[in-house]
Design a protein around this nucleic acid. Sequence first.
RNA 1: GGAGGGGUGGCCGAGCGGUCAAUGGCAGCAGACUGUAAAUCUGCCGGGUUUUCCCUACGUUGGUUCAAAUCCAACCCCCUCCA
Length: 401
Amino acid sequence: MTYTSDFLRVLDERGYIHQITDAAALDAAASAGVVTAYVGYDCTAPSLHIGNLVSIMMLRALQQTGHRPIVLMGGGTTKVGDPSGKDDARQLLDDARIEANKASIRRIFERFLSFDGPNAAIMVDNDDWLSGLAYIPFLRDIGRHFSVNRMLTFDSVKLRLDREQPLSFLEFNYMILQAYDFLELSRRAGCVLQMGGSDQWGNIVNGTDLIRRVDAKPAFGLTTPLITTADGAKMGKTANGAIWLHEDALPNWDYWQFWRNTHDADVGKFLKLFTDLPLDEIARLEALEGAEINAAKVALANAATALCRGAEAAAAAAETAAATFAGGAGDDLPGFAVAGPTNILDALIGLGFAASKGEARRLVAGGGARIDGEAVGEDAQAGPGARISAGKKRHGVLTQA
RNA sequence: GGAGGGGUGGCCGAGCGGUCAAUGGCAGCAGACUGUAAAUCUGCCGGGUUUUCCCUACGUUGGUUCAAAUCCAACCCCCUCCA
């Protein structure tokens, strides 16, 4: 459908929309005035990753089109654990860990959202209202609105049951708590929209239903598609782990390289989702063919890195890339301090290119280890200043200890 | 409580006394080809070492045996059916 509100039009054009509970009504609401919407983030790790970035960018788009974003930290729900899309119960985190994760995650949002101004973003923590709930009153006020029959039909639950995997009562309650969050935000902040990934659809719908039943207020849900790469893989999962948004979890250089290595077929999609570049510029970039599309990938890497890590970090990474792939080295490359001539195997391990001597040896045997661009054997030595490469993409420099 | 089935390397999944560090697939890494792309082909893919060799590993703990992922016992966990 075509939207009249800037908000939904932008989301639609850029590929953020998978499902909406009542698109026409939400469009009308967003046209008529300021909409307050939220996305929840559980505190399961000290950093958010690429998988969360879609919804963060969506909150950004919301704010840019004049509406008010709420970032909900799931300090309370993390204590329960979301079963959505999980085969097994998530390991429970202790309170101290959750607190630490929460504190760490918060910082990310300051890069993407503005927390002051007329439609300032706000940040809340559901631990504030969940942890103090009294069981019996909660069951009587909220629990009675949930049909177990219906809950059993939601994918997050059904999947577990179908796969004959256990689902604890604790996890089973997650969707009720998430629905209650939405109700709470509706009451506290006039929030009318919850957004999230497509795996959150069931949880979100529970929230909109609850608000209608209890308060007879408008409530909408909107989900993003699961972002996959052109070869069908879930985006952002690499062998080395997730692509983290925090620089202390993943260096700027690696973050930039992740975007730079996007598949050809994904460039346009990613530019729309993960950068603020105007659509006509994106159209021009994604139309590039052959080797020229590399220019689009650089633009993507620059823009995405600038958003998350800052313009300086993006420029430094771009500079390093230009120098490195021309055969030189740049400041952003990983370094390993050595006192003098060092064996290639130790250098590879020190730079993190191999996890063990055996792996380093295999890398060398396969012809993938290079010193200053020259393939070497396993007896080779390199000293400070040497450029060490593992394959064609991973490069590092030995520094003086 | 009773009967039966099952727990294997990042994942899936074979093996069911030695020839098993464990077939195969996926994922991953490297090489060739390229554009720091895709596809394809090739090699690698527990750790330490010069291949020989040693160590760790098939839910946990013991046991039988010259020898166990494979047999036995106990325990833990999961699934199915019955009560």
